[in-house]
Design a protein around this nucleic acid. Structure first.
Ligand code: ATP
Length: 939
DNA sequence: TATAACTTCCTTTTT
DNA sequence: GGAAGTTATA
């Protein structure tokens, strides 16, 4: 009974779970083979059968979201209390946790601030400025982002600034200029490090660097009896070192991974760590899982065909017992708007034709990059489909959020100058660049942090600077001091933020300075929400079993930290200082009562910075919403229906990417997220960085089409969900097959609300495909459906419906089914149980194979690829017929320019001219404008 | 010092 | 389509 979870595993999975705990294990398996499930079960097994204490287990996941999910799954197996004791999280989160606990072991302070990428960037930008002349002299240019990535890579490889410098000197670049660049980078690296140390700050890589230092000490790792690592193929050198150190006393390691899914090489991930592990742990055993439980056979086939083009790849078998299902769809569109509209329509159609078995939350749109989401968001909005955009990081990049967090950072870590600079004049206190520069200079001369310096000015114990500031900073100092006391008392972050916005009158400030103050204020409220949500689960509980820091200065360090500068002042002036607001006394009291390494505020700040993935979207966030996400953050997840737009050269592979194979694997990862239905699409034109660009189908897919004699890998037709398919789908998803009456009714509703309906025949593209496919269902289903449609024949739909009924032939004639006609054989191939593999003629009885390939409509004939030519010749006549009848070209193109919203038609509501509001991952409302000054939308 | 208005330059993925 | 940086003006 308690072993029930073991019975839900197949033989290989069971073998992996029950593998002797003291023999290092690599579980290597393709997508959907249950790796994560096995890892979770193994943790349960180690605790329940091998009687390893939960607190002696270290489980590393790739994202915080994955950690949360694993906790959830594990809770079902072993109960909440045990799960909470397991040391689980990302490498970064675990390092941060331990560094706060044992800071002095590696010479950091436990109130260090995590420096996010944005902050790193502006620090480096400033440092880079001083090399401007040098670079110009050598006719060189150096982008901050390059510098960042070089430094990050150096850190990830464990190289110090000194290492880089000597390398530059001895091995140098091939050319003198490369040498200059290398030298500059090494120097920048050094100054950057110096800056971070002076500001008591660690960046993401530092967390690992110092983590490795910390975990290389045996006293830090002797609690550990077993380490488990998920997504091992994406670990970098430092992370591998961490794992090795944490496992150094027990030598017990379990990792799972899939080389085909390594997509973080750009972040210094090393697949070679798999081999390295075999060397470091010679007893390592490998277990392979080859059964895929996630996807239909045809999705798996398409995915494997794509990834198999990688010649360097080690072949791997993966099979499924699921039926073929619908052939993945590959479509081409004239523009990204058409693509987006069609995806939105298709989501609606599927939702309807599944009779509600598929809810909004069952659909995902996976993108190569976030910037592609705009057109999709607006198309979904037009269709009234709720969606969430999974890029929670953006929330923390808002001006208003950054302001507040900077205040809090400053409260926690007075030495963090970037935060000081950000908020010293927020709200406006008459301290501009000049005065600020003066403060910084004078503070530096006195060897004080700027905050400590102005506190002294405020207390009148240091002369004011040239443009006097004493008065201007009074309220600022007062606010900071009050918050400091509050934070030390262990006040909950949400309350601290509430106090903060009152103290600095932040709402007023927003109203005065921001035209969209309302939305920004909503974001502030959302931050408070987030703080209260997260504060309940924030603790360093997993470290409870561990001894306190042995170094005597440890706790002192923490509690005295904010006052450290005061101490310096004591030495300097020899006066015993009475701190305002008794904060010193409070601190002393806290030292006795609070042995934790962290205040709630500190944990909150850390969570804000570390959990950019935002993931689950909270309780309300993800439910009942279509997800839009990047391919990268979709790793490890699954959805019944997956759309992948922009499968084009330039996006897949991305134009600037260095590793085409990694890009292919990324597409593979995206495809393998799908359980039942998969759609790839691409456009002829797309707006890239403000420029209209001609686009072509990705070679990754093109190669598949061209390599396959009979192209049954992809279909150009959207699938028609008949009874058999719904049953199959229900089986795969473990759901109830919908009632047929419900299906019919929902489809009827789908039609009745279809405001683009009248455009379909003339628009002649993908839209009409939706139409035709759905129409086919109608007809094949029952006459009842048709009757129903006639019942629904409201006045406003008269035109539409009459076109539908009388124009059946015309619908067929203009059917855009052959939009992407890879090979003529694609539609005339053998019949399987896949509906969309059926020839159009079969789909629409009475159809006379009169097809209108879209490339003819949208591309001049001479641009057609030779592959299409025979078909083009075949259908040219029909194109003319069609043109004569309704001129699909003109109508579609002109209407498409207006977003299908031409006068005299049932117009969809006008697009709002306000910035787009989005609910982000955590359910936070956000405007379309981020960090910088607000610009009102142009007319 | 603060703000408004203008120009330029981009493309990415995330802990 | 923006963000970041620069310049002009009160
Ligand atoms: N033995 C099994 N029987 C039934 N379903 C299973 C079994 N093993 C795994 N599954 C299901 O297969 C799906 C994929 O599992 P899981 O996410 O663990 O795979 P994975 O190998 O981690 O995938 P990926 O590599 O894509 O992250 C899940 O829905 C899971 O419940």
């Amino acid at each position: 009974m308690e072993d029930e979870y073991l019975q839900r595993l197949n033989a290989e999975q069971l073998k992996a779970v029950q593998h002797p705990h003291d023999v290092p294990l690599q579980i290597l398996a393709g997508p959907g083979s249950g790796k994560t499930k096995v890892l979770t079960s193994r943790i349960a097994y180690l605790i329940l059968h091998e009687h390893i204490q939960p607190q002696s287990i270290c489980a590393v996941t790739f994202t915080n979201k994955a950690a949360r999910e694993m906790k959830e799954r594990l809770t079902k197996l072993i109960g909440k209390s045990k799960v909470e004791e397991v040391k689980m999280g990302t490498f970064h989160a675990l390092c941060a946790l331990f560094l706060r606990r044992y800071p002095t072991r590696v010479g950091v302070k436990n109130n260090f601030t995590v420096c996010d990428a944005d902050e790193s960037k502006s620090i480096l930008k400033r440092l880079l400025n001083s090399y401007k002349d040098c670079l110009e002299d050598n006719h060189l240019s150096l982008d901050v982002r390059n510098v960042m990535s070089m430094i990050s890579k150096a850190k990830s490889r464990g190289q110090s600034p000194h290492d880089l410098a000597t390398r530059a000197k001895h091995f140098g670049g091939h050319t003198p200029t490369e040498n200059v660049i290398d030298r500059i980078i090494a120097e920048l690296y050094e100054s950057y490090e110096k800056f971070l140390r002076e500001n008591n700050s660690l960046d993401f890589d530092d967390l690992l660097v110092y983590g490795v230092k910390l975990f290389s000490q045996q006293q830090t790792t002797n609690w550990c009896r077993h380490v488990l690592v998920d997504e091992f193929q994406d670990t970098n050198t430092l992370q591998y070192e961490l794992m090795r150190h944490i496992a150094s006393s027990s030598r017990c390691v379990t990792i799972v991974g899939d080389p085909d899914q390594s997509i973080y090489g750009w972040r210094s991930a090393e697949v070679a760590n798999l081999a390295k592990m075999k060397l470091d742990f010679p007893a390592t055993v490998q277990i392979y899982l080859e059964q895929n439980y996630r996807s239909t056979a045809s999705i798996l086939r398409a995915s494997m065909t794509i990834v198999s083009q990688d010649q360097t790849r080690i072949p791997k078998t993966l099979h499924t017992s699921h039926p073929d299902g619908c052939i993945p769809v590959l479509r081409r569109f004239p523009s990204e708007q058409d693509e987006a509209t069609c995806i939105a329509r298709e989501i609606k159609r599927l939702s309807a034709s599944s009779g509600g078995m598929l809810g909004w939350e069952d659909f995902v749109i996976l993108l190569r990059m976030n910037s592609l989401s705009r057109s999709l968001e607006s198309a979904l909005r037009k269709e009234g489909i709720p969606c969430r955009v999974l890029k929670g990081q953006k929330f923390f990049e808002r001006l208003e959020i950054k302001d507040l967090l900077a205040y809090l950072q400053l409260v926690d870590n007075p030495e963090f100058v970037p935060a000081f600079e950000r908020v010293i004049n927020v709200p406006a206190r008459g301290i501009g660049d000049k005065t600020l520069g003066e403060i910084l200079r004078a503070a530096h001369a006195k060897q004080l942090s700027p905050l400590a310096f102005i506190e002294r000015i405020h207390d009148g114990r240091v002369p004011d600077v040239k443009p006097p500031v004493k008065r201007k900073i009074a309220s600022f100092v007062k606010a900071i001091r009050e918050l400091r006391v509050t934070a030390r008392q262990g006040t909950m972050p949400a309350d601290i933020i509430r106090k903060l916005i009152i103290l600095v009158e932040y709402e007023d400030h927003l109203k005065r300075t921001q035209p969209d103050a309302d939305t920004r204020w909503e974001n502030v409220m959302e931050l408070i929400n987030f703080a209260s949500e997260v504060q309940t689960e924030l603790n360093d509980y997993p470290l409870q079993d561990l001894p306190d820091e042995t170094t005597p200065t440890g706790d002192k360090d923490w509690d005295d930290m904010p006052d450290e500068t005061e101490v310096a002042e004591l030495d300097e002036e020899g006066i015993v200082e009475v701190k305002p607001n008794n904060s010193k006394t409070t601190a002393a009291q806290m030292a006795d009562t609070n042995l934790e390494a962290s205040t709630p505020l500190r944990l909150f700040l850390q969570a804000s910075l570390l959990s950019g993935d935002s993931g689950d979207g909270g309780e309300e966030g993800g439910k009942e919403k279509v997800t839009i996400s990047t391919c990268h953050s979709a790793k490890g997840l699954e959805w019944p229906v997956v759309f992948i737009p922009a499968v084009e050269e330039g996006t897949f592979p991305f134009a600037l990417s260095e590793d085409a194979n990694e890009e292919r694997r990324l597409l593979f990862v995206a495809c393998t997220r799908a359980q039942s239905l998969l759609y790839l699409s691409h456009c002829n034109k797309r707006l890239i960085a403000g420029k209209q660009m001609d686009r072509r189908l990705s070679t990754f897919v093109k190669a598949v089409i061209e390599d396959t004699p009979v192209c049954d890998i992809f279909a150009e037709e959207t699938p028609e969900l008949d009874r058999a398919h719904l049953e199959q789908m229900a089986a795969i998803l473990g759901r109830q097959t919908p009632n047929q009456d419900v299906v019919v009714q929902k489809l009827a509703e789908f039609y009745s609300t279809d405001r683009y309906h009248k455009f379909m025949p003339t628009s002649g593209n993908a839209l009409s495909t939706t139409f035709v496919a759905a129409d086919a269902v109608y007809r094949t289903d029952t006459d009842k459906a048709i009757q129903q449609r006639q019942v629904l024949n409201k006045p406003s739909n008269n035109q539409v419906l009459s076109k539908v009924t009388h124009g059946r032939q015309s619908t067929q004639q203009y059917s855009g089914r052959s939009l992407v006609r890879m090979k003529p054989t694609a539609v005339s191939g053998p019949h399987h149980d896949t509906s969309n593999r059926r020839p159009v003629a079969a789909l629409c009885p009475g159809h006379s194979k009169q097809l209108l390939p879209l490339q003819q409509v949208f591309q001049p004939a001479n641009e057609q690829s030779p592959r299409y030519s025979s078909l083009a010749a075949l259908t040219r006549g029909h194109l003319h017929d069609a043109s004569n009848a309704e001129d699909p070209r003109g109508t579609f193109l002109s209407s498409s320019k207006q977003g299908f919203d031409s006068p005299g038609t049932a117009a969809p509501p006008p697009a709002p001219s306000v910035p787009i509001k989005r609910r982000l991952g955590m359910g936070r409302m956000v405007t379309g404008y981020a960090n910088k000054k607000f610009r009102p939308p142009q007319s």
